[in-house]
Amino acid sequence: MVAGIAPNGAEASADAPPKVVVQNLTIRYGSHVALHGLDLSVRRNEILGIIGPAGSGKTSFLRALNRMDEFIPEMEVEGRITFDGRDIRRVRNVYALRSRIGVVFPLPVGLPLTVYENVALAPRLRGVRKGSELDEIVERCLRRAALWEEVKDRLDSLGSLLSGGQQQRLTIARALSQEPDLLLLDEFSIAVDPVTTMRIEDVLKELKHEMSIVLVTNLVQQARRLADRTAFFLTGEHVETSDTARIFSGIVKDPRTHDYIEGRFG
């Protein structure tokens, strides 16, 4: 196991055991099947892009990875998900699991705390008490989320009253403050302007040296720019997953993937 962990700076490797392995995952909301029989893995230090039209089960997949079904009524998850080889249904401390997974959803949520406390919350929860250490984490995470310059003079103002784009970057900073080794991003650029999106994309490219990233996006070109591999979901079905370069050069197993990338539907 230890030997398999990618050393700092290593590129995604197919040899190392994957970070996350998903087997036969089915997700239902009541009688509605959102995702059916998914088999997929997330490798270490890769960005896995997930593309597909609305309602294809991308968000449900992210939710299942973080065991969010526990607080979403009606959501039922079947199948097996392992994280570092551990079945996530069987961990005794689900909070420890979630604390290692950072999530960013399309609707930004600035918590009704100060900007500083928004980012300091996760470190505090894991027991960081020293002021200087917290200061350092807060600044580093805000810088990475491309928000530091805008808020460094008002760290004491309420995070929930920032603009939508700022709140989204605050959410990203908060996810990073967890020091996650898996980062889940769901259409993060919806609430962010194009320039900031580019800046965050650059950060993501750096971050993958430290963690695995799953990037759900409705922008096919964003997947092309960032993802090492790209998965295509369609109405709850996992159509295929392949190296991004292959998919975008037209080497696909299923013609629907090609049609979607070419913008013929969705």
């Binding site: 962990i5 570092d84 005794r92 401390n93 699991l97």
Partner: peptide
């Protein structure tokens, strides 16, 4: 170390 951290999964 990721391995050390995954031990937290069992520690309540």
């Amino acid at each position: 170390d990721a391995l050390a951290r995954s031990r937290d999964f069992d520690r309540r």
